[in-house]
Simulated scan of single mutants.
Amino acid sequence: MTADGNNQLISVQPNDLKFVFELEKPSFCDLKVVNNTEHHVAFKVKTTSPKKYFVRPNTGVVQPLDSSVIRVTLQAQREYPPDMQCKDKFLLQSTVVPSNTDVDDLPADTFNKDGTREIQECKLKVFYVTPSTRGNSDDEGFKSYPEKGTDSNSVSLNVQHLKDERDAAVRQTLQLQQELQL
């Protein structure tokens, strides 16, 4: 696998994080991570500003040809950034893992660049938008899906999108329940 974009282990949608910025209010952006391979792929999310963001899950294993949703939450901020510009960045690392690997069983060195395994990286920039420039609510989350239409192709895409969201929510709920039990 090469990192030329066509042979990526995973693809991420959207490819930028956009947060509606309001003082004293948290904001979130969902990332959909799609495993493009027949292998199990582990991922890890890193950021240049870990105190500003809450990422769940920040590590995980995506089944072959499946997807996972990562929710990135911008914590409530007390002041506006200069010119509403954000220099924060996120790094999504991915690597192939054995098929029986559970997220809790990932070795601590899974994402170390020691040359023993290939680690692919995807960089994501952060943008702040004001509530007035947000437009309609379709701007949040999964905007790469086509607009709702009446042709059967877009209806089936929307149904698949809803199924993907439901499955991701169920997986996330199960994972949170497991974390609570620990």
Rank of each mutant, 00 (worst) to 15 (best):
T2H: 09
Q8I: 00
Q8H: 10
I10H: 02
S11F: 04
Q13H: 11
N15Q: 03
L17I: 14
E22L: 05
E24N: 15
P26N: 03
F28A: 01
F28M: 01
L31Y: 07
K32H: 08
V34N: 12
E38L: 04
H39M: 07
H39T: 02
V41A: 04
A42P: 01
F43Q: 01
V45W: 11
T47G: 10
T47L: 05
T48V: 10
P50M: 06
K52F: 10
T59H: 10
G60H: 10
V61G: 02
Q63C: 03
S68V: 02
V69N: 08
V69P: 02
V69A: 08
I70K: 06
I70V: 15
R71S: 14
R71Y: 04
V72N: 00
L74S: 06
L74D: 09
Q75R: 15
Q75E: 14
R78L: 13
E79D: 12
D83A: 14
Q85N: 12
Q85L: 15
Q85K: 15
K87Q: 13
K87E: 13
D88P: 08
D88H: 09
P98N: 11
N100A: 10
N100Q: 13
T110K: 10
G115E: 08
T116W: 01
E121F: 05
K125R: 13
V126Q: 02
V129N: 06
V129K: 11
S132R: 12
R134C: 03
G141I: 01
F142K: 04
S144V: 06
P146Y: 03
E147K: 15
G149L: 09
S152E: 05
S156K: 07
V159Y: 13
Q160P: 00
Q160N: 13
L162E: 12
T173E: 08
T173N: 08
T173D: 05
L182F: 08
